[in-house]
Design a binder for these strands. Structure first.
Lengths: 144, 144
DNA sequence: CGCGGAATCACCCGAACGGGTGACGCGCTC
DNA sequence: GAGCGCGTCACCCGTTCGGGTGATTCCGCG
């Protein structure tokens, strides 16, 4: 909501600029046009990327999760979702029931970093809570 | 978000109108500016989407493991630990990845009550966090 | 060389969670 | 009737989580 408010604000500001252009006609409108164009292009690019993220859809072939001992994570899904090794590790540790702090100690990184990883992980898994992440990870064969 | 987007849109439209009435006739360059901006925004959006399309596009249809027979909780363990029906139900809902609030809505009880149940549940399971509870409940055959 | 992705960390804020206490009603049992 | 287990709810308090922003380092790729 704040974001969209800002978007509105930016648009307004842009329009003001355009409007201003009329009074400062000394300069060629091309300059302003270019500026506006660049800004909008950047905005569009940014939004485009954002929108497409987490939108991935996966055709899952029956990846029967093998019940045997040597568990191996499903590399295809891992790659399809763009989950990095570190994120995967964090997922494993979350599944162990550890807190972020404990995960940090286990992986020799700060709690803040763990939070960053888990945040991105949740994003990629399309979940909002750790229990859901564990559940999803299991469904996708990312963790035993 | 939709709301604020609309707000932005309305403001934008308003300004456009005002601008049009006052200046556009005399200074048509604004029209061009807007056009250019829109065009570039569209271009940016297009590029942004395309940029991400290279990676596999797919959706996840979770691999439903063949759940043969309806799951039945291990009654012995349930009784041995003194877990009441309500607590068991809360455990199931926790395992679904629901928040306490959502569990309350689902079970028609207040969030506070859910907290009481989960607290006692954790106590009986000997855990301190919900992910651990899910894990333990699984090991003990209390949930699928 | 520059650029992007990965990994690292910090800070802020609000929401969710966990733990503890106290309380009330209901049904069962001694 | 008193005691007990169960379920219900409230309040407080401190911690943990989730989300967002911003910044830095390193590495590989063109």
């Amino acid at each position: 909501m704040l974001f969209w408010g800002l978007v509105g604000g930016v648009l307004l500001a842009l329009l003001k600029v355009v409007e201003y252009q009329h009074f400062v006609r000394a300069y060629p409108s091309a300059v302003y046009g270019g500026l506006v164009a660049a800004l909008f292009a950047a905005l569009g690019l940014y939004l485009g990327r954002r929108w497409n993220r987490g939108r991935k859809v996966l055709v899952v072939e029956p990846v029967r999760a093998p019940r045997q001992e040597p568990f191996v994570a499903n590399a295809e899904v891992l790659e399809a979702l763009g989950i990095t090794p570190r994120e995967h590790q964090v997922l494993e540790l979350i599944a162990e029931g550890l807190s972020n702090r404990e995960i940090g100690e286990r992986a020799f990184i700060s709690e803040n970093t763990v939070k960053t990883h888990s945040s991105r992980l949740f994003d990629k898994l399309g979940v909002r809570r750790r229990v859901q992440a564990v559940r999803r990870g299991r469904e996708l064969g990312l963790i035993p």
